[in-house]
Simulated scan of single mutants.
Amino acid sequence: MALEHRIKELRTRNGLSQAALADRLHVSRQAVTKWEAGRGIPDVDNLRAMAALFGVSVDHLLDGAGDAAGPAALRHAVDVRSLEPYKPAGRPLGAKSHRAVREAYPGAVIYPLARMRSNNRVQEFLEWGMMLAFDTPYGLFGVSDSLSNRDAYYLVEERNRHVLARVTPQGVEGRELPEPVTGRTFTLGADRFRRTSRSL
């Protein structure tokens, strides 16, 4: 697959129009049109910016090699701490992360997620050992992970696709899920997620 096809595939997979991609890269829509038609190629700075935006390497953009085995990630850089909190109707509290994910995915249906990290075998063994030997509560590794990872997670539903969005202080990263989420809970790797019953 040539560079122009990879750019178009990654752009459409992330739900961006040519104009939206151009806006993210600070170039004209005509430049994106030329790249996707094979009538021009992005310069090094634009290749790097696209690779960061889509969560792939520059090598993958150029020749299909590298780190794009999974679904592409879309990054929306923003200083989340500088945003005004977004308060959904009927909710007592607002959050800056709500505002960030709303701006990254306007018009989408968005559900806040609760995340719980599953223990690996060693952690499971240690949890049970400490509980039996020292009468400690079960779940210490999960609590420790929750305290160290303060990012917010959201399930984004738009245009027949589901995206797991993660909001960090630096912005929003979205990764398309391989299958639609049909229930309230789902698992990805070592992470278990539970969505709220009400969207933002």
Rank of each mutant, 00 (worst) to 15 (best):
residue 6 R to Q: 10
residue 9 E to F: 15
residue 14 N to W: 02
residue 15 G to I: 06
residue 16 L to S: 00
residue 16 L to R: 00
residue 19 A to V: 11
residue 19 A to G: 09
residue 23 D to F: 07
residue 26 H to I: 09
residue 28 S to M: 07
residue 29 R to V: 07
residue 31 A to Y: 06
residue 34 K to W: 09
residue 38 G to P: 00
residue 40 G to S: 12
residue 42 P to L: 01
residue 43 D to N: 10
residue 43 D to P: 01
residue 45 D to S: 14
residue 48 R to L: 06
residue 55 G to A: 12
residue 57 S to P: 14
residue 61 L to D: 00
residue 62 L to H: 05
residue 64 G to H: 03
residue 71 P to I: 10
residue 73 A to H: 04
residue 73 A to K: 11
residue 74 L to P: 13
residue 77 A to P: 09
residue 82 S to G: 04
residue 83 L to I: 01
residue 91 R to S: 12
residue 92 P to F: 00
residue 97 S to V: 10
residue 98 H to A: 05
residue 100 A to Q: 01
residue 103 E to S: 08
residue 105 Y to D: 02
residue 109 V to C: 10
residue 113 L to H: 05
residue 118 S to N: 11
residue 119 N to P: 03
residue 119 N to L: 15
residue 125 F to E: 06
residue 125 F to C: 04
residue 128 W to P: 04
residue 129 G to W: 13
residue 132 L to H: 05
residue 133 A to R: 07
residue 134 F to G: 09
residue 135 D to I: 08
residue 136 T to C: 12
residue 136 T to G: 03
residue 139 G to D: 01
residue 140 L to Q: 14
residue 147 L to D: 09
residue 153 Y to P: 11
residue 155 L to S: 00
residue 159 R to Q: 13
residue 159 R to D: 15
residue 161 R to P: 07
residue 161 R to F: 06
residue 165 A to F: 02
residue 166 R to N: 01
residue 169 P to G: 08
residue 172 V to W: 06
residue 177 L to I: 02
residue 185 T to F: 05
residue 187 T to I: 13
residue 191 D to E: 13
residue 196 T to L: 07
